[in-house]
């Protein structure tokens, strides 16, 4: 097996077992975020399990996609405690915030979630939708921009792997636009968006 690409410096990159959840409502591309992160994690030579909401749960307006990344084969496939919660809807933030670990990361779309639940975790409120429209003119790129921010702020996967994963998963013809969104997300500065913990 070839060498794993070097990971970005960041807090989640050094954890041997990372549990991530993306939550939002249908149509926001939350499932795809999970799959792209899983592909990127696999490229990083991590062991990965990705699960997601199906059926009535997925159709009732919720959408959830979970990813476990680890340095060793993963036994229990589901979330036991979150290291990272990415919420694109107020509903998702409310529903899942309780599962975050104290040293976890909470990243949310501040356009959608105006009164985030108070928590100890590192919180970042970022107007993803607005930034996406500014960058590409398309709300559909919000999820990819958010993924860039997630990788930039937490280092959960390497930038190189994430770029490749995005390119392989987005619809043909939209690669350029999505890369722009991803890079915009990657460039966000933690200081600028960090919320005081409560």
């Amino acid at each position: 097996m070839s060498e794993a690409p070097a990971m970005t410096d960041g807090l989640l990159s050094s954890r041997p077992y990372v549990e991530v959840r993306f939550g939002g409502s249908g149509g926001q591309g939350v499932i795809l975020m999970g799959v792209i992160l899983a592909v990127a994690g696999t490229r990083d030579r991590r062991h990965v399990v990705q699960t997601q909401s199906y059926g009535p749960e997925a159709r009732g307006g919720y959408s959830r996609s979970d990813v476990v990344l680890a340095n060793a084969p993963i036994d229990y496939p589901q979330i036991q405690g979150l290291d990272l919660l990415v919420a694109l809807s107020a509903e998702a933030a409310r529903k899942y915030a309780g599962s975050l670990r104290r040293d976890g990361f909470f990243i949310f779309d501040s356009d959608e979630i105006t009164s985030p639940p108070p928590m100890d975790a590192n919180s970042y409120g970022i107007p993803f939708t607005r930034l996406a429209v500014e960058t590409t003119g398309r709300t559909q790129t919000t999820n990819i921009l958010a993924l860039g921010a997630v990788a930039g702020l937490t280092g959960v996967v390497s930038v190189a792997s994430l770029e490749k994963a995005v390119l392989s998963m987005v619809p043909k013809g939209t690669e350029e636009m999505n890369l722009n969104a991803l890079r915009r997300g990657l460039a966000l500065l933690p200081e600028e968006w960090k919320r005081p913990s409560i």
Partner: peptide, 19 residues
């Protein structure tokens, strides 16, 4: 079961070695 059927998982020789 539904979990095993629907999940995506990385598939490496290490897994086969462990399981």
């Amino acid at each position: 079961d539904e979990i095993v059927g629907h999940m995506r998982e990385s598939f490496s020789p290490e897994i086969a070695g462990r399981y």
